[in-house]
Design a protein around this nucleic acid. Structure first.
Length: 165
DNA sequence: CGACTTTGACCCGCGC
DNA sequence: GCGCGGGTCAAAGTCG
């Protein structure tokens, strides 16, 4: 497809460039979709030292939502129960950054819609959602249990519009 | 006035 | 069948 028409806003090819004008982390870690959270913790991460966050988009076999043609899951009629195939079309990217504040401005407007306390962590978990209409992107912010100075930001979904910048 | 934040309650899935 | 955990929505309140 012309793709240009499909995603007029998503001019970014396949790169996630996040800039933090208000914050300068000295270390940046990036995760890819992990099969198990515990595994992720044990897995080795890639420490990147850069003023600008540059991570290659993680392609997780995106198929359905990739086209963004019809993401109306309103019906979401649950199958009779037998053939319930999960939609792994959700992109999940986790970023671990050294930050004092969890409100990292990545160029998008986020609206907090929930806060929860995780048992395995003395710190609460914040849930954010893109304020832009039509943006199914969700963000989960949590502090590292071992290193409170670390902030783990998990992005879910893809923006179908350009950033505020 | 509008948009966003905050807290509690509710719901769902899974495990035992 | 019940309990636990996690996730989401809603109403009220606050800020700009």
């Amino acid at each position: 497809m012309s793709d240009n028409n499909s995603r007029p806003s998503d001019s970014r090819d396949r790169q996630y460039v996040i800039e933090l004008p208000n914050f300068e982390p000295s270390e940046f870690l990036m995760f890819e979709e992990w099969p198990d959270e515990d595994a992720a913790y044990n897995a080795s991460v890639e420490p990147v030292q850069n003023p600008v966050y540059q991570a290659n988009e993680v392609v997780l076999g995106e198929s359905g939502s990739g086209s963004g043609s019809h993401m109306e899951e309103g019906s979401d009629s649950r199958d009779d129960g037998s053939g319930r195939e999960r939609r792994e079309t959700k992109e999940r990217v986790a970023f671990k950054t050294i930050s004092e504040v969890e409100i990292l401005d990545d160029g998008f407007k986020w609206r907090k819609y929930g806060k929860k306390m995780v048992k395995n962590s003395p710190n609460p978990r914040n849930y954010y959602r893109c304020s832009v209409d039509g943006c199914p992107v969700k963000k989960r912010v949590e502090r590292d249990r071992d290193d409170p100075r670390y902030v783990i930001t998990t992005y879910e979904g893809v923006h179908n519009h350009q950033s505020s910048f």
